[in-house]
Simulated assay, not measured.
Amino acid sequence: MKFRLLGAVSAEDADGGELRLGPEKRRSVLALLLLRRNRAVSVAQLTEALWVAEPPANARTVVQSHISRLRGPLPPQGAPRHGV
């Protein structure tokens, strides 16, 4: 699996096929998680990074939805070992 963070955030599977990551904010969530690898990232940190101005009232739900939808295209390699 390869991730690209310069330019448009993207990911490739082991065969070199591009994964469908979704909209810009979802890609931003992935980029922040990759940049903070092996560290906890709170919903508050993600919310602050995603909305420069005042976040919407449902920001927590939106962040959780982006994380949930990112799990779909990403392969589950090693996920059971990490409790996912």
Rank of each mutant, 00 (worst) to 15 (best):
S65V: 02
R36G: 07
L30E: 04
S68T: 15
D15E: 15
L70Q: 08
R4Q: 07
S68N: 13
R60G: 07
L32T: 12
R4W: 03
G78P: 07
V41G: 12
G17N: 15
L30Q: 00
A53F: 07
A44S: 14
E12Q: 13
L50R: 09
G7K: 07
A44Q: 14
R39L: 14
L46N: 10
E18Q: 05
V43L: 15
S28V: 00
D13I: 04
L19G: 10
Q77A: 13
R81L: 15
V62W: 03
P56A: 07
T47Q: 03
A8S: 00
R36M: 07
D13E: 02
L34C: 13
E24F: 00
M1E: 12
G16N: 03
P55K: 04
A57T: 11
A44R: 15
V63F: 06
D15S: 14
L21E: 04
W51A: 08
A14E: 13
H66W: 13
M1H: 12
S10L: 02
L19P: 11
R36K: 14
R39A: 15
W51G: 05
G83T: 09
G72S: 08
G16M: 05
R27S: 01
R39M: 10
M1A: 12
A14H: 09
G78C: 06
A53N: 13
P23S: 00
W51C: 06
Q45A: 15
V84A: 15
N58P: 02
L30M: 05
L21T: 02
P73H: 02
A40G: 10
L70P: 04
V52C: 05
L5G: 02
G7M: 12
A8P: 01
S65F: 03
L70W: 06
R71D: 03
L33Q: 06
R27V: 03
P75V: 09
G78Y: 05
R4I: 07
A44L: 12
A44M: 11
A59E: 04
E54C: 05
L35W: 00
E18T: 06
A53I: 05
L35A: 06
R26L: 03
S42I: 04
R39E: 15
P75T: 06
V29F: 12
E12L: 15
P76Q: 14
L33D: 02
G16F: 04
T61L: 11
P80Q: 13
R69L: 09
V63S: 06
D15T: 15
W51L: 10
A57F: 08
E54I: 03
L32Y: 07
Q64M: 04
V41E: 08
A57D: 14
L50Q: 10
G83P: 10
A14R: 14
V29L: 10
A44G: 10
R39V: 00
E12I: 03
L74G: 14
V9N: 01
